[in-house]
Design a protein around this nucleic acid. Structure first.
Length: 570
RNA sequence: CGGGCUGUAGCGCAGUUUGGUAGCGCACUUGCUUUGGGAGCAAGGGGUCCUCGGUUCAAAUCCGAGCAGCCCGACCA
């Protein structure tokens, strides 16, 4: 491609709208432009990268038993009502009506469509297993789209759906996808980490996420420093040990704590730390009020609580509701002598606490030396806390957990029979009995991968593409107006093109500095500089964008030298 | 949905406190010079100052309402 013809509006200055590196660089490198928050147009360079990623994904998917299809973006409400997700997905879906007043949504995902598609045709165990995938635009009305392509309202996703006769078959399909994903991310040049994950709104059993470790990641993952354990903190657990030294239950006392309404406040006021306190919270799960107890220095894991309660929506109770339950405003609430009409759940760690501090349900008062069993009861102990750095690994029981931010680029689920059951997707087994199809679903965020790749690989000058997804492999910079420079550049350009190498020729009438800077910004892996200086010595100058190293090669045998060079690039 | 910040040329911003003909840098157009890391000089083009309403002789500036964008939060009692 000749850059004089390429629609490549690069920017010198960073647009104010972009906060994180990948977003800034993609705008500056002329890869995309925003139409509305989370909705982007992809320009030639950006779209080229997207297509590269799609092709690698497609190639690896086609090597599995999965077949490519294309499902509708516009979906009818009835299939969502069948699966009971019309309400559950709720505001995340863009819903609208047609002229006949029929309800539709723009597909945020395609479990419903795929299930309704196959349920009429798949009648026999002989039709299974079946695995279908598509690469397509998804629409989700995210609460807060942000970070450019990281969390968009419209984005491209590869989604695959497996259908098996039983769970054994599902396990195999799942493993096949797992292996394919590993290959895909490897080929994309992305460093990913596989972690155990929550199934969220998709429902189902096992689930793994493929994470790119990056500071800008929106997820936190817990990684054991001595074994393979890695999990999204949404579900990561830690080994709880009974570490309390003080087993004697002291006399409960009430103390004055004027205006001390927070854990930190109590830490200062009593010169102690949060691990000695019981934090009492009132949560509202789909209109049911639930009292939750945690150690003072722990954080509630909402996902764990939501899953346990099988709630759709979980939020903090209002101040009025707190007064209603505890008879006192927030800041002094506690589990002692409260009404048993509300469910009281406690994190497992509460079991190991002795002589704790908690609110007294009286303004400006707290209790000290409060003990479970004697001073308060709970309905159930369960794991409700979010793991913290330094926690003990639940698998090897010796390593310690680190927390790292990650970008979720792939997610695989064992759905089981959730959708087939609700939507009646069944088959007849060998005995002529009707059975539910066992499903799995497998997603890869194509556009998010672009952002993740940039996050993972860039420097002060711009993007540094891995070879596999670079929009072009080589960029030729003719410097100056010298005819020989022009002719030589054209010749190299044509030769490389003939060899099937994707190459950019910067034939723009720009100064050297502009060309160098744009080449760096758009991140082409190999740069060839052609100038009168180098031609005098009968050489070409090469620069490896990934390592920053410069090389000189002879003009006589450049085709092979460049091919060699490219084959060594990452 | 709550909080904070912002809205002035394609981009980055000043001007708003104290009302008085709308500015700077980059980009763009033309000419000359220049040409190995975002050139210099000169001449130009481009604005509903987010919108609507109000105050005033006069509003980018003051007041009111709305809209949009960005960031943080949406459990830490």
């Amino acid at each position: 491609m000749r850059m004089s013809k390429l629609y490549l509006p690069t920017l010198k200055e960073t647009p104010a709208e972009a906060e994180i590196t990948s977003h800034q660089l993609m705008l500056r490198a002329g890869m995309m432009r925003k139409l509305s928050p989370g909705i982007f147009s992809y320009l030639p360079l950006g779209y080229k990268v997207i297509k590269k990623i799609e092709n690698i994904v497609r190639e690896e998917m086609d090597k599995t038993s999965s077949q490519e299809v294309l499902l509708p973006v516009m979906q009818t409400a009835d299939i969502w009502k069948e699966s009971n997700r019309w309400q559950k997905f709720g505001p995340l879906m863009i819903k609208f009506k047609d002229r006949k007043d029929h309800e539709y949504c723009l597909g945020p995902t395609h479990e419903e469509v795929i299930t309704s598609l196959i349920k009429d045709e798949v009648r026999s165990y002989k039709d299974l297993p079946l695995n279908l995938y598509q690469i397509q635009t998804k629409v989700r009305d995210e609460i807060r789209p942000r970070f450019g392509l990281m969390r968009g309202r419209e984005f491209i996703m590869k989604d695959a759906y497996s259908m098996d006769v039983d769970y054994e078959g599902l396990d195999q399909s799942y493993q096949e996808m797992y292996d394919a994903y590993t290959k895909i991310f490897d080929r994309l040049g992305l460093e990913t980490r596989v972690v155990q994950a929550d199934t969220g709104a998709m429902g189902g059993k096992d689930s793994h996420e493929f994470m790119v470790i990056a500071d800008s990641g929106e997820d936190d993952i817990a990684i054991c420093d001595s074994c393979d354990y890695a999990a999204n903190t949404e579900l990561a657990t830690a080994l709880n040990k009974d570490v309390s030294s003080d087993q004697n239950h002291k006399q409960k006392e009430i103390i004055d704590t004027p205006n001390v309404t927070t854990i930190e406040g109590l830490e200062h006021f009593l010169d102690t730390d949060g691990s000695k306190m019981i934090k009492t919270m009132l949560m509202k799960a789909d209109d049911e009020l639930v009292v939750v107890l945690l150690r003072g220095d722990d954080k509630l894991n909402e996902v764990k609580l939501t899953n346990y309660l099988q709630a759709t929506n979980l939020e903090a109770a209002t101040e009025d509701e707190i007064v209603e339950v505890f008879g006192v405003r927030p800041g002094f609430i506690g589990p002692v002598d409260i009404s048993d009409e509300y469910k009281l759940l406690a994190d497992n760690r509460i079991k190991y606490m002795n002589n704790s501090i908690c609110g007294a349900n009286i303004v400006d008062k707290h209790f000290v030396n409060v003990n479970y069993g004697r001073d308060f009861e709970v309905d159930e102990f369960l794991d409700l806390r979010t793991v913290k750095p330094g926690d003990i690994c639940p698998d090897c029981e010796s390593g310690s957990l680190e927390i790292q931010p990650g970008i979720e680029v792939g997610h695989i689920f064992k759905l089981g029979t959730k959708y087939s059951e609700s939507m009646g997707a069944t088959y007849l087994d060998e005995n002529g009995r009707e059975q539910d199809i066992v499903m799995g679903s497998y997603g890869i965020g194509i556009t998010r991968i672009v952002a993740a790749a940039v996050e993972q690989s860039n420097d002060d000058y711009g993007i540094i593409w891995p070879k596999a997804i670079a929009p072009y492999k080589v960029i030729i910079l003719p410097l100056g107006k010298n005819d020989e420079v022009k002719e030589t550049s054209e010749e190299i350009y044509n030769t490389l093109q003939d060899r099937g190498i994707e190459v950019l020729l910067d034939d723009r009438n720009e100064r050297a500095g502009v060309k160098f800077n744009d080449a760096d910004l758009i991140g082409i892996p190999l740069r060839i500089t052609v100038g009168s200086r180098s031609l005098e010595n009968n050489v070409l100058e090469l620069k490896n964008r990934q390592t920053g190293q410069d090389y000189e090669i002879s003009l006589d045998n450049y085709e092979n030298e460049i091919s060699d060079f490219l084959s060594k690039l990452k």
